[in-house]
Amino acid sequence: MTFSTVKMLSENGILSAKSMIEDLNLTQQRFVSKLPLIITILGLIGFVGNLFTFLQPTLRKNAFCIYTLSASLIDIINLSVNLCPQYFNPSPGGLFAEISDRFTCKLRLFALVVLPQLSLNLLIMSLVDRFACTFPSTSRMSRLLKLKMVPLMIFITIIISSIESLYSPLLYDIIPDYGCGVTHATENAVSYIAIHGILTPAIMVTLVGLTYRRFSRGRQRVGAVTTANQNRFRNQFVAMVFTQVFVSSFFVLQWIGMYWYFLATQYDNKTAEQWTITYFMLSLTNNFYYMINVRSFYLSTLTSRLFRETMMAGFLKLLPGNLHRQWNARNLTAPNTIGTRTVE
């Protein structure tokens, strides 16, 4: 191979790398930087849809629906506080670099961590509620289905979420000439990955497995003809929460996986092209992580017929005449079976 050939190949490689960097930067500016606003708008629409549907008389006195609505409220708060500001200040670390007060720094980091964790923990509570439905009414677990227990369980969930997120304000502080930043990077990374990337998805998937096993055993012991209608409504909410768990786990793990890769390779001798790809994927997966705060309404609409019927019945109530009464008589039957337990 001649020197001119080697020189030509080298120049082509440089041009190709430069072209990829420019393409990724252009995609970042035109698409990824717009995701915070798009996701926040989708989350706001979903929150209004959940609020409208779960406050209908058919659903508002069910513990599962209260947990789901509470999680939806935390979702929109998280999107407003942690995601939407990134649209107006998309520069890396821009929001934290502007913080010069120590208390504001720690409070900001605490909100960044505790809000998404609280949303996931409330999803876990809705799973616990479905798991409690599989126990007989004489069991201690069935007490969790009572409405008077819901405020206490939500309060306990808030306390647990706060304890799980305490590491964030402890490991961040004001760094001179930088702003609000991490002071113990290794401990912060290990805590974040262990709690939010491993422990939380593991708990959700474990509860899904336990609940599914008990429902399966309940179906084998209960007559199919006498309880078919009850199981149909009960299982719609089971399918809804199961789907939300798996979708939430996916969006958590795709971000945790990329974050883990970045930490493992941050001191590697990478080319400019490799660093551009890494930062692009970090930004993309971090934005997609906030889809866990959007998924509730849309997955509920897709997976639960009762949710769709209740929402449509609520809309029809806004119309004049007796149209909504006729629709309810045809479609919304057995509304009180959503909390039905399986027979042991």
Rank of each mutant, 00 (worst) to 15 (best):
M1N: 06
K7Y: 10
K7H: 12
M8N: 10
E11N: 13
G13T: 11
I14D: 13
I14R: 15
I21W: 00
I21F: 00
N25M: 05
Q28N: 03
Q28S: 02
P36W: 14
L42N: 01
L44P: 09
I45G: 11
I45E: 01
F47Q: 00
V48L: 14
G49D: 07
T53M: 07
F54P: 06
L55R: 04
P57G: 13
T58A: 09
R60G: 03
F64E: 11
L83P: 12
C84R: 01
Q86V: 09
G94C: 12
G94V: 05
F96A: 00
A97L: 03
S100L: 13
R102H: 09
F110A: 12
V114P: 08
Q117R: 14
D129S: 06
F131G: 05
C133Y: 12
T134C: 03
P136T: 13
P136F: 04
P136I: 05
T138K: 13
S139E: 11
S142D: 08
L144Y: 15
L152M: 01
I154Y: 02
F155Q: 08
F155H: 07
I158M: 06
P169G: 04
L170S: 13
L170C: 14
Y172I: 00
I174N: 06
I175Y: 11
D177E: 15
C180T: 09
S191I: 14
Y192I: 04
A194T: 03
I198L: 12
L199M: 10
T200L: 12
P201Y: 01
I203M: 05
V205S: 07
L210E: 08
L210C: 11
Y212S: 15
Y212W: 11
R219G: 00
A224T: 10
V225W: 06
Q230L: 03
R232M: 01
F233L: 13
F237Q: 01
V241T: 14
V247A: 02
S248Y: 04
S248C: 10
S248M: 04
L253V: 14
W255K: 11
G257V: 11
M258E: 04
L263A: 07
L263C: 09
T271H: 10
W275V: 05
W275S: 10
T276K: 13
I277D: 02
I277C: 04
T278F: 08
S283P: 02
S283F: 07
S283A: 15
N286T: 11
N293S: 15
N293T: 12
V294D: 08
F297T: 10
T303Q: 12
R308T: 07
E309S: 14
T310R: 02
A313G: 10
G314M: 00
F315N: 00
K317G: 10
L318E: 00
L319P: 01
P320M: 00
W327D: 05
A334F: 13
T337S: 14
T342P: 04
E344Y: 15
